[in-house]
């Protein structure tokens, strides 16, 4: 009798044990290690000692690191709004009863489930400056072919050059190479965001729209006063999720603008790519960990905002 009750007391833990072991060894332990490693000079030769905040000080004066931060910000600022506007437009069109709705949704969703590597290989070819389809179309239409993924010049610099203005530094904007990557990123996630928006739209009770119709509201008025405010929980969610995903971009950069370099003149060197290079090309684990911690704190802030919004969303439903 006693052994049986002891067994049943241990039993619940046994159910968790397999998952717990994996989580402890391959999640919790490395997560904690990345904090401690950021205060050490762990490198190819192993652990040498604690160095205090040296890695963080080095980060502050590392021009390549700041370049990666700026590139990441460019990336986020470019991808997130575009990833809201186009999918929202498509979702509004799909709302309600529509012939072929499932068909459209399937097509839009295709890039979401396709691997980032394969998509990057395909887009590298589409962007190919010599023979790629995009440049072939541009030349056929009488335009000048572009270098796309190999173009280090900023897009503002390129746009303003014909009128004699030559912005430098950050003002030159993200390189065309980085903008080309942004395009792929928006394209890949558009279907996912469309589906999220569609779910949000279909949660808005039809009675609101009927009432607006009775009041004689036009298309824009209905969007402005009904759809947009009532959709805001979804919009916030998409905003935060896209921001987090954009911060983590790696495969696209790695495959489309392969190492060493991170694109022409390092202009597609985003933060996770830089972290990856430091950790696995140089095996500079200590420094890479400091960058990890920085990335983590940024993402943690964003996740906190997202949790709050997700919480609000639950209330909205009831």
């Amino acid at each position: 009798m006693r052994t049986k009750s002891r067994k049943s007391r241990i039993e619940p833990y046994l159910y968790i044990l397999p998952a717990l072991l994996v989580v402890l060894v391959f999640r919790t332990l490395p997560i904690l290690s990345s904090f401690t490693a950021s205060f050490t000079d762990y490198d190819i030769g192993g652990f040498h000692g604690f160095v205090g905040l040296d890695n963080y000080a080095r980060m502050l004066s590392d021009a390549r690191f700041w370049q990666s931060v700026i590139n990441t910000l460019f990336f986020v600022i470019g991808v997130v709004p575009a990833g809201i506007i186009f999918p929202l437009f498509l979702a509004i069109l799909l709302r309600g009863k529509l012939a072929g709705k499932g068909f459209y949704r399937t097509i839009y969703f295709l890039p979401v489930v396709t691997s980032a590597v394969a998509i990057s290989v395909v887009w590298t070819w589409l962007y190919n400056p010599e023979a790629g389809p995009i440049n072939r179309i541009i030349t056929a239409l009488g335009g000048d072919p572009l270098l796309w993924l190999r173009e280090p010049r900023g897009i503002f610099e390129m746009m303003l050059a014909p009128i004699g203005i030559h912005p430098k530094g950050i003002l030159a904007g993200p390189s065309l190479a980085l903008v080309s990557l942004m395009g792929v990123s928006v394209w890949k996630s558009a279907g996912y965001n469309t589906v999220l928006f569609l779910a949000g739209l279909e949660n808005i009770p039809n009675t609101y729209y009927e009432a607006a119709k009775l009041d004689g509201a036009g298309k824009w008025g209905t969007f402005r006063h009904i759809t947009w405010p009532l959709l805001s929980p979804t919009t916030y969610y998409v905003l935060i999720m896209s921001t987090i995903i954009s911060f983590k971009t790696f495969a696209l950069v790695y495959v489309m603008t392969p190492p060493p370099g991170g694109g022409p003149l390092g202009t597609t060197n985003v933060i996770v790519f830089y972290l990856f290079q430091k950790a696995f090309d140089r095996f500079d684990i200590g420094y890479a960990s400091a960058i990890s911690v920085f990335l983590f704190l940024v993402l943690l802030g964003l996740t906190m905002i997202q949790r709050k919004v997700a919480g609000r969303k639950v209330h909205y439903g009831s």
Binding site: R27, L29, P30, K248, L275, A279, L299, T303
Partner: peptide, 18 residues
Amino acid sequence: LSTMMVPQPVYLAPSYVI
């Protein structure tokens, strides 16, 4: 749940060491 908050790139290097 707490491990879900941390994205993979953040702990990639220490995972390699482990």
